[in-house]
């Protein structure tokens, strides 16, 4: 019996997490706070945050909903890189040194790891993220598999803001539409059923539109869904130059 028990035991280790704390009711300045937690190799950064909140400091504030990489609520900056806390296994990070967790950059921090997502959503709204067609939808709109494949990559976006908040251009003044808005515009611009590609191309041919992209590929690296964001932006640029998708 003892032998079986030994095999079933999951190895655990202690990790130190340094979390960027900010509470506007206590201080105007943000500061780092360290926590030590006992974790298993199957645990994710989100589990560590939960453990801290439930066992050590209930005031730690962060967003999470599905906790399985679908809802996009828990994008944070882990060891300087934007990731989803629920998709980052602690064992994949360097557990011998402190793991830093801070809010995503470029959006106003509300408390601890929670940022104000409204500027991000506004850019998303501005590109009309819905099908625009003139005829009445009396029957289904058919589409060939090839036409569907044209924008397949950009349908995967979960609006977690990991890409937009990894973009150095977005960090500057926050006026840039940002990769996520462009990705979602791409999803409709190249959709054969949509009839307002021109409108979206015109919106993105703006002073703060696609031309501000510096192709640093931060967005592509940050995307937890593996969307080739920079490629999508380049395709929108090409479409603007052509004048059609």
């Amino acid at each position: 019996m003892s032998e079986v028990k030994e095999i079933a035991e999951i190895p655990s280790f202690t990790v130190t997490l340094s979390i960027r704390r900010f509470d506007p009711e206590k201080s105007e300045e943000a500061s780092w706070e360290e926590f030590q937690v006992e974790m298993h190799s199957t645990d994710r950064v989100l589990d560590a945050l939960h453990k801290i909140k439930w066992e050590q400091d209930g005031s730690l504030t962060f967003r999470r909903s599905c906790a399985h990489g679908v809802c996009g609520s828990d994008a944070v900056r882990i060891n300087g890189r934007n990731r989803l806390a629920c998709k980052t296994l602690i064992k994949d990070l360097d557990i011998n040194s402190t793991i830093t967790v801070e809010p995503i950059k470029g959006l106003p921090v509300e408390k601890d790891l929670v940022v104000d997502m409204n500027p991000f959503y506004q850019a998303y709204k501005d590109i009309n993220p819905f099908l625009l067609a003139n005829d009445k939808p009396e029957k289904e709109r058919l589409q060939s598999p090839e036409d569907r494949a044209r924008y397949d990559d950009t349908t995967k976006c979960i609006l977690c803001a990991a890409c937009t908040t990894s973009c150095p251009v977005f960090w500057t003044d926050g006026q840039y539409f940002g990769p996520a808005a462009i990705v979602n515009a791409h999803r409709f611009i190249f959709d054969s059923r949509d009839e307002q590609a021109d409108l979206r191309l015109d919106i993105l041919n703006d002073k703060e539109g696609v031309w501000r992209c510096r192709t640093t590929f931060n967005c592509t690296e940050a995307c937890p869904r593996g969307i080739e964001v920079t490629k999508a932006i380049a395709e929108v640029k090409q479409a603007i130059l052509r004048g059609k998708p």
Partner: peptide, 18 residues
């Protein structure tokens, strides 16, 4: 959902990029 978009003055960003 959205008011009709007004045509803006030409911006030079595209030409600068090109």
């Amino acid at each position: 959902p959205n008011s009709p978009r007004k045509q803006r003055v030409t911006n030079w960003e595209k030409y600068g990029w090109l």
